Computed example of a mutant assay.
Amino acid sequence: MRGARVLLQAQAIALSLASTFMIYTALGLLTNCKSPVVVVLSGSMEPGIYRGDLLFLSNNMPQNYVTGDITVYQVAGEAIQIVHRVVETHNGPEASSHLFLTKGDNNDIDDVSLYQGLERLERKHVIGRVRGIIPLVGYVTIFFNELPRLRNHILRP
Score class of each variant (00 low, 15 high):
residue 20 T to C: 05
residue 139 Y to V: 01
residue 96 S to Y: 02
residue 22 M to S: 06
residue 100 F to P: 00
residue 142 I to S: 09
residue 9 Q to N: 05
residue 133 I to E: 10
residue 70 I to W: 12
residue 77 G to T: 08
residue 10 A to I: 06
residue 104 G to D: 02
residue 6 V to P: 00
residue 66 V to H: 13
residue 135 P to A: 11
residue 24 Y to E: 03
residue 47 P to V: 10
residue 139 Y to W: 14
residue 112 V to N: 02
residue 117 G to S: 15
residue 154 I to D: 11
residue 30 L to Y: 14
residue 98 H to Q: 07
residue 24 Y to W: 06
residue 35 S to K: 12
residue 4 A to S: 12
residue 13 I to V: 08
residue 91 N to M: 11
residue 27 L to F: 12
residue 119 E to L: 12
residue 61 M to R: 10
residue 103 K to A: 09
residue 8 L to D: 05
residue 142 I to Q: 12
residue 90 H to W: 06
residue 23 I to E: 01
residue 53 D to M: 11
residue 16 S to G: 10
residue 59 N to P: 04
residue 46 E to Y: 13
residue 157 P to I: 02
residue 22 M to K: 11
residue 101 L to Q: 08
residue 155 L to N: 08
residue 83 V to T: 15
residue 83 V to G: 01
residue 6 V to I: 15
residue 109 I to A: 11
residue 137 V to D: 01
residue 7 L to N: 09
residue 132 G to V: 09
residue 16 S to N: 11
residue 10 A to T: 08
residue 42 S to G: 03
residue 143 F to A: 07
residue 113 S to K: 01
residue 116 Q to V: 13
residue 11 Q to R: 09
residue 88 E to H: 15
residue 10 A to S: 05
residue 102 T to Q: 05
residue 54 L to I: 00
residue 22 M to Y: 10
residue 32 N to P: 13
residue 131 R to E: 15
residue 128 G to L: 05
residue 39 V to N: 07
residue 139 Y to H: 14
residue 83 V to E: 02
residue 52 G to I: 00
residue 24 Y to S: 03
residue 30 L to Q: 15
residue 99 L to I: 08
residue 82 I to V: 15
residue 106 N to S: 06
residue 56 F to M: 15
residue 123 R to Q: 14
residue 151 R to D: 08
residue 116 Q to K: 13
residue 124 K to T: 07
residue 31 T to Y: 09
residue 40 V to S: 03
residue 17 L to C: 04
residue 112 V to G: 00
residue 71 T to A: 09
residue 93 P to R: 05
residue 15 L to M: 12
residue 87 V to F: 04
residue 137 V to G: 02
residue 99 L to H: 04
residue 112 V to W: 01
residue 4 A to G: 12
residue 131 R to A: 10
residue 111 D to F: 09
residue 126 V to C: 03
residue 6 V to C: 14
residue 18 A to Q: 05
residue 83 V to Q: 00
residue 9 Q to T: 03
residue 68 G to Q: 06
residue 34 K to Y: 11
residue 42 S to N: 04
residue 27 L to P: 02
residue 58 S to G: 12
residue 138 G to Y: 08
residue 20 T to D: 01
residue 69 D to H: 04
residue 92 G to F: 00
residue 130 V to M: 15
residue 129 R to V: 03
residue 36 P to R: 04
residue 113 S to Y: 11
residue 67 T to P: 02
residue 42 S to L: 06
residue 108 D to A: 10
residue 148 P to I: 14
residue 96 S to P: 11
residue 135 P to E: 06
residue 48 G to D: 03
residue 45 M to V: 08
residue 87 V to E: 04
residue 84 H to S: 11
residue 38 V to R: 02
residue 142 I to C: 07
residue 17 L to R: 03
residue 124 K to R: 09
residue 27 L to E: 07
residue 117 G to A: 15
